[in-house]
Every structure is written in C-alpha cells, then in structure tokens.
Amino acid sequence: MLANALAARGHDVELIVVSRAGPNEALVSPSVRITDLGTGRAVWSLPKLIRALRDSRPDILVSAMAAANVLSALAGQVLRQLPMIAIEHGDMNAVYHFEKKQFAARMAYMITPWVYSRFARIFCVDQSSLLSVAAFTRRQDLPLSVMPNAVIGDDIDLMTAQDVDHRWMADDVPVFLNIGRMVDQKNHSLLLQAFARVVAKRPARLIILGDGPLRMELERESHELGVQDYIDMPGFHNPFPFLASASALVLSSRWEALPTVVIEALYVGCPVVVTKASMGTLELVGFGRYGRIAEQESPEALAQEMLAALDAKVDKTSLHSQGARYSGSAVASIYEREFAVVISEATGGDGSWMPTLRA
C-alpha cells in the first residue's frame, strides 16, 4: 500500500524482496519496480541486497519487521551514507518468543539492540509497539516514534462492491466474520468457544476466512463443541464483500499491533468486536467508541460482546471515517514529509526541499 501510494505521488519506488512469488505480487502497482533477490529467505540475502542497493543507489531505504530490519541494518554497515528507516509492527517480545525456535530468527532478534542504532528513524505502528521495542532492546537512545500503517488502498471500494461468494450472506441469520491465519496468535479456539455460547442463546453463524497449520485442530474443536454446522472455513477470499455483509467482525487475537482487518472492517462500516490484543487495537476502536471490547480473554466475555453487537445501533459513517485515516494516500503524505527530513539530515540540508524518493 505504501509503495503504491508513494509511486502514485510521483516517486521512483523499488520493492526489494527475497522472493516475488505469491499472492501479494498482484497487489503491487505496475509503477513500482520489483527487484527479486531470489534467495527465498532473508538469512541468505545480505550479499545480494548490498549489490542491489549499490546498483539502484536509492535516496532512502525502508524495511519492515525484525528480520528485514536486521538485514538492512547490516547492509547499512557497508553502505554508510545510505539513510535508513525501520518499521516495527508488533510486540517484539511476544514475536521473539514465538519465533525463537528458528535459529536465524533468534539470532536476528538478539542483535537488534546493537544494529538498530543504524536507523535514522524507527517507526512503530502504535504506542504499545514502540514500548515493546524500547523494552526488548533496552535502549533509551533509539529514534522511536509512532507512525500509522497504510492499509486502505485505492481499489477497496471496487473490491467491496463485488458479489459476496457465500450462501449464508443471503439469509437473515446473523453472520460473524473472522479473518486471519490459523495460528496460535489469532486464538481461534477462544472464538469457537465464545461462538458456541452465542449459538446456545440465539441463531448465528461464523465464517473464518484464511488458512493455516491449526485448521484441522479447529475443525476438530468445532465438532467437540457441537457447532460444526454453523461454522464455515472457506479459505482465502476477497474479504471486503464479506465485511460489508457480515453482522460483525470478531478479532480474538492474543496479541496484535495495529490489526489491518479491524481498519478494513471500520472502513466498510462493519461493526467490530475485539479482545485487548494491543493498545493499537484499543485505539482503533476508540476505546469502545467504534467497536466493542471484551474486557477479559474468556469465552464468556467475548460471547457477551458478540451478542451485544447484534443489537447495537451502528453509525457506519463514523466507522468509515475512522478507517479512512489509514488510507495509503493519507499515510504516504506523512511518510513523504519524514523522508524529506531524514534525507536532508543525511545530506546536511535544512529539510525544506522535497527529493525524489527511492525506497
């Protein structure tokens, strides 16, 4: 989203990836150049990244999340004159404990306290992400600040207008929606248990869009709870028609940073029910103004808010305005100003000019 928006504003944008194969390639604007390092994994990419940066000679390099940030910081030790910005998306400590079983990931996280000082700015998508980086690195001198994430693209209205591809959306029974990978972080087990309590009180259905390693476990649990006939897990689909038609989106995650799916739901006017997954999650729903919050991470608390969401009045205009704050164009304009300052600092300017950016 950010690359597309910056390119639309006239900048020369290059997206460097370790592998371009995958569904997200179709989301990249033709105006954005893609450089494929062809390594498949970040851990093997440092020499090729350095060569790619020497060839393209960008004005500024932006990387996101710990593995790519560490890789960029190491490249920056060679390319000393290159201004660099890092982006952190979540609770660094929680993600580290989840990923530390992989040796390369563990090593990357362990050297962050030393290499993150290479960055001119470290943008965190919410205040809790910022605090987690400071706590994990134990560095008080890092250039941390909060920067919103670019989530809403220019094509979202067209994607929302497409027909919803599910039979349940055509009748009057309320449908709850969850969108996310079937992994421990998303806590689908909590959602299933809460949904079972909802169905015990009134007719409802649940659709989970996405896939992941816990699919079979979740299917087994839905049978154990006796709600398998009211739950569907159809895999990957365009989520926006589902959001526009659903009774509510439910985010059951254990942790998040600034959850994209909540922003997307708000933009299309879909009511949301969330756990206290992060400060960013609570900020998105205005601490209750734009969505319902389960006060405890329990099936009973989540079910209570899901039931309440079915009877609550919805101001879709207000929800839309909250989601629109995270449009690609709005966020790109903020990044654009920050890029100009960072480049100016690196070149000894006064920050009053606007260079051509190559990220």
Rank of each mutant, 00 (worst) to 15 (best):
30 P>K: 05
30 P>E: 01
31 S>D: 12
34 I>L: 13
41 R>K: 15
42 A>M: 13
43 V>K: 11
44 W>Q: 12
49 L>S: 06
51 R>C: 15
54 R>V: 13
55 D>Y: 12
56 S>F: 09
56 S>N: 05
58 P>C: 00
58 P>N: 01
58 P>W: 00
60 I>W: 07
62 V>Y: 01
66 A>K: 04
66 A>S: 04
67 A>C: 11
68 A>D: 03
69 N>C: 02
72 S>R: 04
74 L>F: 10
75 A>H: 02
77 Q>G: 10
77 Q>Y: 14
79 L>Q: 07
80 R>G: 03
82 L>D: 05
84 M>F: 05
86 A>K: 04
86 A>Q: 00
86 A>E: 00
87 I>Q: 00
88 E>H: 02
89 H>G: 10
91 D>Q: 08
94 A>M: 13
95 V>Q: 11
95 V>K: 01
95 V>R: 02
95 V>I: 15
97 H>F: 15
97 H>V: 14
98 F>G: 09
100 K>A: 09
100 K>D: 15
100 K>C: 15
101 K>A: 15
101 K>I: 14
103 F>P: 12
103 F>S: 12
104 A>D: 09
106 R>L: 09
108 A>D: 11
108 A>L: 03
109 Y>T: 06
110 M>C: 13
113 P>V: 07
115 V>M: 01
116 Y>T: 08
118 R>I: 00
119 F>K: 05
120 A>P: 06
121 R>P: 03
122 I>A: 02
122 I>N: 02
123 F>E: 01
123 F>K: 00
123 F>A: 11
124 C>P: 03
125 V>K: 00
126 D>F: 01
126 D>A: 10
129 S>L: 08
130 L>F: 03
130 L>W: 01
130 L>K: 12
133 V>S: 04
133 V>L: 07
134 A>D: 08
134 A>T: 10
134 A>L: 09
134 A>R: 14
135 A>Y: 02
136 F>R: 11
136 F>G: 08
137 T>R: 00
140 Q>L: 04
140 Q>D: 15
140 Q>Y: 08
141 D>K: 02
141 D>A: 06
141 D>R: 05
141 D>M: 07
142 L>P: 06
144 L>Q: 03
144 L>P: 06
146 V>L: 03
146 V>S: 00
146 V>H: 06
147 M>A: 01
148 P>R: 09
150 A>H: 05
151 V>A: 06
151 V>Q: 04
153 G>V: 11
153 G>P: 04
153 G>Q: 12
154 D>N: 12
154 D>K: 09
154 D>G: 07
157 D>F: 11
160 T>W: 10
161 A>R: 13
163 D>C: 04
163 D>L: 14
163 D>N: 12
164 V>Y: 06
165 D>G: 02
165 D>P: 09
166 H>P: 11
167 R>F: 15
169 M>Q: 11
170 A>C: 08
171 D>P: 13
172 D>S: 13
173 V>C: 15
174 P>C: 01
